[in-house]
Every structure is written in structure tokens, then in C-alpha cells.
Design a protein around this nucleic acid. Structure first.
Lengths: 120, 120
DNA sequence: TTGACGCATTCCGATATAGGCATATGATGA
DNA sequence: TCATCATATGCCTATATCGGAATGCGTCAA
């Protein structure tokens, strides 16, 4: 089997740096395809393709405006990602693992200490 | 050019559901490859391959323990992702975009109103 | 109606999977 | 030393890109 489609979910969609740049740019408001392509230094077809992926996972919306198509951000799909990654927050705060080990060692030390007390 | 390597960064690494499951499981502590494979219902080679990817982007660490290799979580690499996605937090809170549009419409309505006043 | 403009789509080529299977590598214990 | 257990790696197939170039298509203005 091949790699999952970029359109399978938001996780795959934002794995591509250029698509992340598109999303960041769209925080400033709606943009036309040509504008996006120009500002991000990519070809128009590439912009269209990336926008299609973002559209299929629901991270952007389109609005027709004459000849142009204005793409706007729809960040709701990013929320599950934020929450999933947030579930690891306590683990990247400093030396959690070492602290965890430290706590374990501490407990063990106390037990041994208690055992020594019992012996005496 | 083809798609970026899964080992290029954490964004690509966590795009794969099974790798996300591995990370979630490792929140409970270190696990051996066989344990991971069993608990997640994947073959041992697949587990090893996914772990290699996670290792190369620095999301897990290995510790040799006799015949086994215990993999542990190193979530620090998830922090940049959390922060990047967090930059969109205000955009998924409720009807931000509509509120934005509403504010625009309101401004425009006020300007037209002012113009009408001038006319009269 | 015609030409120009803005976008989307298609075709092509190079690449990197993900999964199954077989096998090499390494450490352990008898 | 040898058999066994735990992992890692190599090979193969099917697939899904990402980028470039060319092209189709709808809209708008003259």
C-alpha cells in the first residue's frame, strides 16, 4: 500500500510546508489563487493543486468573485490536531521523563527506607 | 519531485495514523517493539519501520535492555507543531470568519449611512 | 464575437512511501 | 557452540504524490 492521501485528513494536508504557508497567509484574509501563487513564489497550477487539497480536507473555502476565486481560511479542521498534540504537552515540559524516573527512584528509596526501619 | 520524506520533520512523521498510535501508547511509558506491535495489531517489521521514522525525527528514543529495545517518548519535537497550529486558535473559535465579515459589512453600512447623511 | 485573464485539470517523470515476506544481526541461555 | 528470542533491514508491489508544461474552460471587457 502506498502512503495515505494528502486529502485523507488534516494531518496529511498540513504535512506539506507550502500548504502550511498558504494557511498562514490566509490568516490575513481571503486571497485569489494568483495572489497566493505570487506571494509564495509558486506556480499558479501548484497553488491550485495545494488549494484543492486544503479544500478537500475542509481547511479552506472558496468564494467566486468574477473571474477570480477567493480562498478563505476555515481553521476548524485544525482544532483536532491541536488537541491531539496538546495531549503531549506535559511530556515536552522540561525533563519530564527524568522527573518521572526521579519520582520512581524516590518512591523506591522510601520503601527501602521503610523496610530498614522495620528491620530495626 | 515526490512527496517529502516522512523523516523530514515531525509534521510528516505524525501524518501516519499508526505512528500517532505508537506515540499515544508510549505516553504510558517505555515499550518494547514486540509489545507495541502486539498492542497495535501490526507486524513486528512494520512496528520497527514506524519506530525508525519516529526515531529519525527525534520523537522517540531507544534504550537497549538485553535482547529488547525499549522505546520511549520524546515529545519535545511536538511542541513546534502545537505552537504552529495554536497560531490558528482564534480562527476556529466559533464564527470568527462570519464575525469578521459582519464587522466589514457593519463598517460599510456605516459609511453608506454617513454618505446618505451627507446627501441630505 | 473575440481576445485576454484567472483557474483548474491533465499528462509526465521522479520519488518515497506502507505493507507483506524473508532474512540478517545481536544478545541470551543451555 | 548452538538454538532461540527480539529487532532491524532488504526486496517487491501498488500507490500517491509534487513539480513542470500544456491545455481546457468560464468570465469579462471591447
Amino acid at each position: 500500500m502506498a502512503r495515505a492521501a494528502t486529502t485523507s485528513d488534516a494531518f496529511n494536508a498540513i504535512a506539506e510546508p507550502q500548504r502550511r504557508e498558504i494557511l498562514m497567509l490566509l490568516r490575513g484574509g481571503e486571497r485569489s489563487v494568483t495572489e497566493l501563487a505570487r506571494d509564495l513564489g509558486m506556480s499558479q497550477p501548484q497553488a491550485s493543486k495545494h488549494l484543492r487539497v486544503l479544500r478537500e480536507v475542509g481547511l479552506v473555502r472558496v468564494r467566486e468573485a468574477g473571474k477570480q476565486r477567493l480562498y478563505g481560511l476555515d481553521a476548524r479542521g485544525l482544532r483536532p490536531i491541536h488537541e491531539w498534540v496538546g495531549g503531549f504537552e506535559r511530556f515536552w515540559n522540561g525533563t519530564f521523563d527524568r522527573l518521572d524516573e526521579y519520582v520512581r527512584d524516590l518512591k523506591q528509596a522510601r520503601q527501602e527506607e521503610a523496610a530498614d526501619d522495620d528491620d530495626q
